[in-house]
């Protein structure tokens, strides 16, 4: 049993390293197709992280929706537009932008340290630990029970949002007759 004690931590560090590496590659790759492929890798390892956190349903949705639908959409648009790789002069580093990154980092540090000190007092832990979820019928069952009772209205609003997005996509991407005629 002792030998397996460090396995989750090693798994976490390996997955985190791969997530960081692939997200840096998403931002740094010059070719948009390369970025999209690394985005798939990144999202897949984030799904692995979710599975490691016992969020099995979320991991499945992550792979299905993000890697299966969103990135395919990106690749499709890249293919339609026939983009060339960026010129390297596109990356220029001004003082203001560096300042924004630094301030964001400082904000994370401040918020993180505050959370580390006060979070256990401010928030009431629930009673759905890993063992309790296992007893109640598994992660998917528990999430579904919560979603269709307490979060029913947000769920319905999300479906309306998707409907709106469909209509908006069709209207925006439709060929505009007034523009193409001139």
């Amino acid at each position: 049993m002792e030998a397996f004690y460090f396995v989750p931590e090693m798994l976490f560090y390996a997955i985190s390293g791969l997530i960081l590496l692939s997200s840096i590659m998403v931002v740094a790759a010059r070719n948009p197709v390369t970025s999209a492929i690394f985005l798939v890798v990144d999202l897949f390892f984030v799904a692995a992280l979710y599975a490691q956190l016992d969020a099995h349903f979320t991991a499945a949705i992550q792979v299905l929706v993000y890697a299966g639908a969103i990135v395919v959409l990106f690749v499709f648009v890249i293919m339609i537009l026939n983009l060339k790789p960026d010129a390297l002069r596109g990356i220029r580093f001004s003082l203001g932008e560096a300042l924004v990154l630094l301030i964001t980092l400082a904000g994370f540090v401040i918020v993180g340290s505050e959370l580390a000190h006060t979070a256990p007092d401010l928030t009431m832990p629930g009673n759905l630990g890993s063992a309790a979820i296992e007893m109640a019928g598994g992660n998917t069952y528990v999430v579904a029970m919560r979603m269709f009772t307490a979060f029913l209205w947000p769920f319905e609003i999300a479906s309306v949002l998707i409907l709106l997005a469909i209509v908006a996509c069709v209207m925006i991407a439709k060929k505009d007759k007034r523009v193409t005629k001139s």
Binding site: F74, P125, L161
Partner: peptide
């Protein structure tokens, strides 16, 4: 020890899909 965070993730994924499509 709650599942509300995972439900929020589902909503964030929904919004992300809509945002990417639009």
């Amino acid at each position: 020890a709650q599942v509300d965070g995972q439900i929020m993730v589902l909503f964030v994924i929904t919004v992300a899909a809509c945002e990417a499509a639009v």
